[in-house]
Amino acid sequence: MLFRDLSFSILPGTVTRVEGANGTGKTTLLRILAGLNDAWSGELLWCGKSRNWHREEFLRNVLYLGHRPGIKALLTPMENLRALVAPRRPVADSVLHQALSGTGLDGFHDVPCRRLSAGQQRRVALARLLIADEPLWLLDEVFTAIDAKGVSAIEALLQQRAAEGGAVVVTTHHELQLPGMRSIKLGEVAAQ
């Protein structure tokens, strides 16, 4: 068992960081919140309603980025981004182009992703954040393979998101300091 007696709320307009040493279950917690891990017991409410009974409504409102970026190596960034966004809402190609350019992938829109570096592939996944309308973001190790400039851009994006009323939950090994950031500490009891 990784954790027990865990209770918290995630409010609109906040960034929450899940903290804890390796193996304390940060990723597991995020996967549980997203609905990828069923091996838990308890209650999870979305807007006051049980998440498990309103699965599709909940999924429409959450954006999850995991360790694996969810990018197909044989498809181009455009095709990948469209596949990730299109099941959620109709989206114009121009919007997708803009998002990719916004992550610094200009000139790579139509190159198969297997020709891109690991960092560039992650940027394709991150492009979703620039055009996301989901109120809840669950970001697992979002800074992995991203250069310093990219990191500060993401930090700014998260802060802006919170200011607009979005809710963000992140796990990261990177030192993240945002004003008003909340935190959930895992592995506390075990350490005592």
Binding site: P12, L75, E79, A86, P87, R88, R89, E134
Partner: peptide, 27 residues
């Protein structure tokens, strides 16, 4: 930008199925 609100409408299931199918074909 307007404040972010929960979304209610998703793309129809048939359209999503078609997208899954065509992506697999393309790959």
């Amino acid at each position: 930008r307007p404040l972010i609100k929960p979304q209610e409408s998703a793309v129809s299931t048939v359209a999503a199925m078609r997208a899954v199918f065509s992506r697999d074909m393309k790959v």
